[in-house]
Simulated scan of single mutants.
Amino acid sequence: MPALSAAVLLATAALAATAQPAQAQVNWTVTGNVTMRIMDYEPWPERNQVCHHSFPITNTGFGQLPKDFWYFGKCGGEIRAEIHYQLSGSHDGAVSLYGVGRVDLFEGTSEDTRDLDGQAHFGSAGALGPKIFKGSSMTRSFHVFNAMEGERDDKVDLTITWRNVTP
């Protein structure tokens, strides 16, 4: 009799485990805007060239698998600023920043240089960050300068806004 009770208990537990509804994976869409004010310090011939960039963004994905996004702006023939981040969706249509994002400032002999001279990080490694619920938005601002060469006038002020427009 105890063996029969154990078998019934295991069968009931298996049915209960499979009877739970699966959480649906959903398509998600985040729109927004990136604005950059980049300054390239030069004592000559033009002092401190300033460039402004503003562009719309549309980030889409499916489910919880994190997806990578990045954008960049250039200035003065010597500076490039980039923002890198990941987004991940959830079953309720919310979207989260995932892992560590960063803003990079490169300064060198061309706008395509690989000479990384300043950086700001945001988020947490391997973790979900703040949620952006359906119909809401989040804005983050960053100030990054050429810390490697002590040149505070080679810099980017970057603002990004994410809007969760998931239907």
Rank of each mutant, 00 (worst) to 15 (best):
M36H: 05
A147T: 14
W70Y: 14
S90M: 03
N59I: 06
A3H: 13
T18W: 06
V8Y: 08
W162E: 02
A127K: 15
S110I: 10
W28Q: 00
G99N: 10
W162A: 01
F72Q: 14
F122Y: 15
T29H: 06
N27P: 09
L15T: 05
E149P: 05
R114V: 10
V156G: 00
L4Q: 09
W70N: 15
E149T: 09
K74C: 02
G77M: 11
R140F: 05
C51P: 04
S96D: 01
T35G: 12
F142W: 03
G76C: 08
W162P: 02
P56N: 14
G101W: 00
Q64D: 13
I160Q: 00
V103G: 00
G123T: 05
K67R: 14
I132W: 03
Q86W: 10
F142Q: 00
G123W: 00
Q64G: 15
V26Q: 07
Y85M: 03
F145M: 07
L105F: 08
M148H: 13
I132A: 01
G101Y: 00
N59M: 15
H52T: 06
E82D: 10
K74P: 00
T58R: 15
E149Q: 15
V95N: 00
W70A: 14
D112R: 15
E42T: 12
F133P: 02
M148A: 14
C75H: 01
R152L: 13
S137H: 12
V144P: 00
C75P: 04
V156M: 08
D154R: 03
G32V: 04
S110E: 13
A24M: 09
L105H: 03
S141R: 13
T166L: 09
C51Q: 02
F142L: 01
G61F: 05
P21C: 08
R114P: 01
G77L: 11
I83L: 10
V34A: 06
V50A: 04
G93C: 14
L158E: 02
R140A: 02
L116A: 06
R102H: 11
G135L: 11
V100I: 11
R152N: 09
P21D: 03
K155R: 11
P45H: 12
M36S: 01
Q25M: 12
A13H: 07
E82G: 05
G123C: 07
D115P: 10
T166W: 05
D104V: 08
D104H: 15
Q64N: 07
H52F: 12
I83Q: 01
V100A: 02
M148P: 00
M138G: 02
F62P: 09
A3P: 08
D92A: 13
A24C: 08
F69S: 08
F55S: 12
Q119S: 12
L65P: 05
P43Q: 14
E151D: 15
A125D: 09
G61Y: 11
G32A: 06
D68S: 13
G118L: 04
D153C: 08
L128M: 12
